[in-house]
Design a protein around this nucleic acid. Structure first.
Lengths: 340, 340
DNA sequence: TTGTTATGCAACATCGATTGTGCATCATCG
DNA sequence: CGATGATGCACAATCGATGTTGCATAACAA
């Protein structure tokens, strides 16, 4: 085994008594098209293997302007996005390409800069998950001719795969309402109603979840108060403060709580953890996202699980349909809390 | 705004009425060393900015054989590794480089292949987290002259940063024992003792945790039975089966349980969730890893939090000290379960 | 035997940025 | 005034792989 780095097609060519172009053709598989004798190709391949040769990918990418890199941009590493990252990795590697995962912390400026960087790398494709400004990013990619897909947050001008948030939220809300009935049902005072907590109303996913929530609630009691919806941000710390403020304003927990996303869940729990168990059990919880530990808390929580595997698979399928603003929806799965 | 892709230094050179080499120097900051007039450099930089120029990184990497890419290899995306990934990303970007995060599923073959791939990309450095076969990987990197560091699992022949597992486990075990005292203390029957669950004994981190566990236990009761240590794998499903088997063998939960890692925690909880609350509260739990939801379960759990920020920072600091088998330890933080 | 097509491979230009070298121009000094 | 040195920049050779072009030789037909 010699130096992994230094060996080039020229070195191999010398050893094999052939030219560099022949070696190149033999090694990248194009030898058949280039009318290289099978025996020659096999000899070269054997020598390369023996020498532990591996092509300089920069050189190849420079020449072909295709890098073999596929990127995934995520806002952060929470459970949902990590799951996406995991299946994305597997999927890319299965295609013999190299997955590159980058988190951009929900900062639009950072997202744009990252796209520029990736373009400079001649990236083959970009998957955006939970992007803040999809259209802007899509235009950037289009300019650089980079195939791209949006997951979780749709884009008006590019293929997108999203969870069916509206239906999902509707189902989850109905489930919470069902639990609330056992706790006394939806009443007239603020404390006897359900609240929607967390998320960013300016984003389509949150808007759709709010819509599903509202529909289910309206169908149940015939009215929805805008005050019941608290959706300014996904920020974890803000979630902690929001639930605390709500608790103080109402003089206790409401009878139902729709928690939007796992990060909000985590933030809210920081406050909830300080409450006595009776209070927690007097509120019906639902969370739009799945968190395994959620099933094991001191109080029951319904959860809506987004099917990350399916989302990623469909996204790959849509990669071909470039620039077509297709919107594909994947329905999430309800995990009903078992009463204890 | 023109095509993001096509603009090269030659185009800029034409516009500026200068040569490509001058443009190159102006744009990459080496113009001072190359005695380019400040006025010329500024003019070129202005034109480049106006044209939205960005350098072709393949070409640069090909020439300089440095890619600006820094890789992080993790086994999977659990909470601990995701945290590492998050701080790693930030750290790399702060250095104006591009983070590449790849999960290799604890498969040695996959790890080796990934290192080869990365070498072919002229990767600038590799951070290995929780690697299965550190020495082998280190040799590969050394051959390709890639700076590298190991986090979480040490390597005998390369710089490593790990949690002080032994001390951490000792402290955590003592805390569990303390809780056990309130539950009746350590007695003579199997059900009145403490068990160590999960992890892989062939790995140094688990070995050290077992050592710390044993020392604390020995100091407390003067003996340790090998049967008290169940550490064959980090696998989540196996953890579920192990705890179930233990429960059935003992005819109930033991009085204390040391859970090794968050994935084992998650696996064990699948079974624990099926038990009535009284049984859970009759056992003192400790987990070597921090899981925010862990503080909010139906029973108290002490947790030992690994300081991922510090681990990553120290790893960067050690990158320079190439090939020196330095072992740096970072002590974890105890999160005492509050009784409810 | 000559002309034609097929086969197998080497030469060479190319991708875009970097960098060693060299050639002007201008200032400085004895 | 010629020698010396600093200044500002252009030229051209790389880095390693790809693919087009073209030159041999062989195979075949006329």
């Amino acid at each position: 085994m010699t130096k992994l780095q230094k060996e080039t097609i020229y070195d191999i060519a010398q050893r094999a008594g052939a030219s560099a172009s022949t070696v190149s053709a033999a090694l990248n598989g194009s030898w058949k098209k280039r009318r290289i004798a099978k025996s020659t190709a096999e000899r070269i391949i054997a020598i390369a293997a023996e020498q532990g040769y591996s092509a300089n990918l920069q050189a190849r990418a420079l020449r072909t302007s295709r890098s073999g890199l596929v990127a995934l941009l995520i806002p952060e590493y929470n459970r949902f996005f990590s799951n996406i990252a995991q299946t994305f990795s597997a999927e890319v590697r299965a295609r013999n390409q190299c997955p590159v995962i980058i988190s951009t912390a929900r900062i639009p400026e950072e997202e744009r800069k990252t796209v520029s960087d990736l373009a400079a790398w001649s990236i083959d494709a970009i998957f955006f998950v939970g992007s803040v400004a999809p259209e802007d990013l899509s235009r950037h990619c289009a300019e650089a001719e980079i195939p791209h897909v949006f997951i979780d947050q749709p884009c008006d001008i590019a293929p997108s795969v999203v969870t069916d948030n509206r239906t999902g939220a509707n189902v989850l809300t109905r489930e919470i309402l069902l639990s609330m009935v056992r706790l006394g049902g939806v009443g007239d005072t603020p404390r006897e109603t359900i609240y929607f907590l967390g998320g960013d109303r300016t984003l389509p996913s949150t808007r759709n979840r709010v819509a599903g929530f509202s529909e289910a609630l309206y169908a149940h009691v015939g009215r929805v108060d805008p005050e019941q919806i608290i959706a300014e941000t996904y920020d974890l710390d803000v979630a902690t403060r929001s639930i605390k403020a709500l608790y103080e304003r109402l003089g206790g927990l409401p009878r139902g709580l729709f928690i939007n996303s796992d990060s909000v869940f985590e933030g809210a729990l920081r406050f909830l953890a300080t409450l006595p168990e009776e209070e927690l059990r007097a509120c019906a919880f639902g969370c739009f996202d799945y968190e395994p530990f959620g099933q094991l808390l001191r109080f029951p929580v319904h959860m809506m699980r987004q099917r990350h595997r399916m989302l990623v698979e469909r996204a790959f399928a849509l990669l071909g349909s470039e620039n077509a603003p297709i919107l594909e929806q994947v329905n999430p799965e309800l995990y009903r809390a078992t009463l204890r």
